[in-house]
Write a protein that binds this DNA or RNA. Structure first.
Lengths: 229, 229
DNA sequence: CGGCCGATTGAGGCTTATCAAGGCCGGTGG
DNA sequence: CCACCGGCCTTGATAAGCCTCAATCGGCCG
């Protein structure tokens, strides 16, 4: 696959490109890097200085970080059109998480300084970015509340809803992503065994359906009722 | 106490006023509301539409929200100069938390629309707001990681550090705020009994010192080492 | 001085993590 | 084509950590 051009990008409608003048599009198109990666591959390692902004051109990724005793946590899931790098705007420039490809993916990146220039030159984009970061903050606080007050069963339900929010097919209820039990556990902050048991229960209760590796949410409302909001 | 005027406010150096032109200061001064409240009082109730931005003029507050089964959680602590209301920028306009005064306090508020106008008219303020919200997001993610991966003892340590970050006196190590064991538990997401036990341990180990209702951090580094970062 | 509220400390029980055994594929090689 | 292997998933037993409950203590205020 060769690097796409920004003018005809299928992500033209995303937060950033949508609000760029022709001149800025040209600059970005010229300056951008293009990165391809295979399923499972580490794209950005934890701990490096955050000098780039990344845009997911294609595919799905997970953003993880590792805590005490090597305990893994999946902080966020992202897909085509999403942006990675805003957290670098806070004083600390070190990237505090790793990004892995959940399937074959492709990303574009531009230098952080270039993005900052673009922000300054484009008030509308700045405002959109503020709203974007704010809504991430709100979502993070909701997840925090769920993960710290709910029991295991409820946390697994909440996590399924989160995965559905990002990767779910509203028509079929299918979670169109391949996550292992271990990965679901790292979203729900529990163990793979507990996830397994909860999924079995949910299936018996008719709330979800499994079909090989596929997962369908049959009664998202029933899951919703188990969580806080 | 009568309403202060914005030109001579002791918070003139805060995020907002610092970046206001004289004209805007006049408008804000004229449009602002001034609210006083006693210790323990509910200032903003959960669930109301978010139509105002609040600035803490004086005092200390806690921002709490209640989860399933009435379980309380303290999401954030704030003090003089801090701003409450950015979360209203996300699509959902409902305020998802309550604000209580931890001591006698005073707040100024302005209409959300006025603040939005001010933002649009002032790119520098917009950018500062973006950085502010981003750093809140980063801090929230760090707390989330701590509260979901650490054991009780470590969570209590982390919570003491958080309180210290907001209300701590760097010179003496004193946490200059009066929080009950129950409130500390709602920060650490555990029970008041566990907090009590951990504090006793920490004191025996020389990490903290209690003096009546006062709390001093003697070895913040030792507490730090127990957490993730 | 008595009563009340919050803090402390200990005992018991519940939830959840850990460990272990067995099952179900998908891939590989004979 | 089939046997074998390895990885992941499932399920049950066990153990540890934490919450809940209860009793006691201590300070504060009337």
């Amino acid at each position: 696959m060769k690097a796409p051009d920004c003018f005809n990008c299928h992500c033209r409608d995303c937060t950033i490109l949508k609000r760029c003048s022709k001149e800025w599009l040209e600059i970005i198109d010229k300056e951008k890097n293009f990165i391809r990666c295979k399923k499972g591959q580490l794209i950005i390692p934890e701990g490096i200085p955050m000098s780039q902004f990344y845009f997911i051109y294609q595919g799905k990724v997970k953003i993880t970080s590792v805590g005490l005793y090597g305990k893994q946590q999946i902080k966020r899931l992202a897909k085509e059109g999403d942006i990675i790098g805003f957290r670098g705007l806070a004083s600390n420039n070190i990237f505090s998480a790793s990004v892995y490809a959940l399937e074959d993916s492709a990303l574009c990146s531009i230098n952080k300084d270039l993005f900052l220039d673009l922000l300054q030159a484009n008030p509308e984009l700045m405002f959109e970015s503020l709203k974007l970061v704010t809504s991430e903050l709100v979502r993070m606080e909701r997840r925090m509340k769920n993960l710290t007050t709910l029991n295991v069963r409820e946390k697994v339900a909440e996590s399924l809803l989160y995965v559905n929010e990002v990767f779910g097919n509203p028509a079929t209820g299918e979670l169109e992503v391949c996550l292992s039990r271990q990965e679901l556990a790292e979203i729900a902050m529990t163990t793979k065994e507990q996830v397994s048991k909860c999924l079995s229960e949910f299936e018996q209760e008719g709330k979800i359906r499994t079909e090989g590796k596929k997962l369908f949410l049959l009664q998202p409302d029933a899951l919703q009722k188990m969580t806080c909001d």
